[in-house]
Design a protein around this nucleic acid. Structure first.
Lengths: 223, 223
DNA sequence: ATAATAGTGTCTTTTAGACAGTATGTT
DNA sequence: AACATACTGTCTAAAAGACACTATTAT
């Protein structure tokens, strides 16, 4: 019996919060198929390459983000037979959460609002993959400390709150939020320094603690 | 540029609760590599086959479970280069949650306790995959209604509680549990019938409701 | 009657949600 | 001074945890 062999790619859903919007890193395709559509950065894996290694390599090569501080986790694998019209490709998607970084040097690579992207023609099944990545990120803010992955190394409680508000598209009470996150075990570590970059009274700066879970979780307000 | 092509397989972590233990469906390997070790049921995908279709096919062919009522979801994809010594294989793992079914007709296919399996030599990286599947199942009981996937079509609150207790390895207060699950929106639908199969006072029988989320979640007791 | 399990009620503690009030900076 | 934001405190409502008590079957 002979075993079918397939092309295997890695696609990246890299999210960040910038200009009051949840944004994803995208390419603009300049040739068929799906010319003119947006697509996720990605590429084929090498024969001797582990999946997370391929994801990190493509993060540098195709997303322009060589920074190792970016949180990267496997999202899901997409493999229905005609998702690429040229050949059968099984794609392993990774989800990356990044702080607001300087834009890439390449003109082809753009941060774009996920709401905009959702209303535009996407290449392949990349809209579906993006949706899955956004929903994963939204869900993970509830019960993990991953929101801090969207923040710079030192951040204020208000900046962290704005991450939640923008990713969830909701308003959160600043005082209750403050109590919740500062009270959570090992979520935030005070640096002792303060900043006035948000205006008003100087705010404590925090670093990310080593807690991964947020217990009890912070549930999204439901309409 | 030439695209490397790889074998892609689907491996199944099928869990059930039987004889007071969380069990997984396994094969016993009768030839190298990993002769004598246990392995997860699985196989290669066909060239024109979608991943969920392949998972369902292998569920029937290799696990002996053609039953469509079994909950099936994608778990994760494993692809480090030497996970199979014969050739490079990227494996997409699926997680299945099944009620306590009659044993398979094939002697090679066995339900075995996940704790036992964790202490025995496994083929390939199947111990890691099993651990990931078990952890996913444990986590999902917290914030979804998936525990009912381990139960027969009609079940009592006590049977549902035993699922939680066995999967989590904890004791839960029967009265608080009853209040929580019967109060949860659209988690359980009373059938009107009762049963005495657990002894004692007859218990209401319930069917699974259409709620997928459990809000607020039922958190595992922590030590 | 006794044992076993189902189900209800009650009290306490924890947490969330709403919001008043004080603190400390900038303009 | 006015204003902006940070932070603390307080009250209430919801939910979890502990556990007493009643209900309905089998033996």
């Amino acid at each position: 019996m002979t075993v079918p062999r397939l092309a295997v790619s890695v696609d990246l859903v890299v999210l960040t919060v910038r200009e009051q919007r949840l944004c994803a890193l995208t390419w603009r395709r300049d040739r068929p198929p799906y010319e003119g559509c947006w697509s996720l950065p990605g590429g084929f894996i090498q024969l001797d390459e582990d999946l997370p290694v391929a994801a990190a390599r493509l993060m540098a090569e195709r997303a322009g983000l060589a920074d190792v501080r970016i949180h990267l986790e496997q999202l899901a694998t997409y493999g229905y037979p005609d998702r690429d019209p040229r050949q059968r490709v099984v794609s392993v998607a990774y989800l990356g959460l990044a702080p607001d970084l300087p834009a890439s040097s390449r003109a082809q690579v753009l941060w774009r609002s996920v709401d905009e992207l959702d209303n535009e023609r996407a290449a392949f099944d990349h809209r579906r993959i993006l949706r899955d990545g956004v929903e994963r990120a939204r869900a993970k803010l509830e019960y993990t400390s991953l929101a801090a992955a969207f923040c710079p190394p030192e951040f204020t409680v208000a900046e962290l709150r704005r991450v939640y508000e923008i990713v969830w598209g909701t308003h959160l009470d600043p005082r209750n939020f403050h109590r919740k996150v500062t009270g959570a075990d090992r979520f935030l570590i005070p640096t002792g320094r303060t900043t006035t970059r948000d205006g008003g009274r100087p705010a404590q700066l925090y670093r990310r603690g080593d807690a991964e879970q947020l217990r009890p979780p912070m549930l999204r307000p439901r309409p």
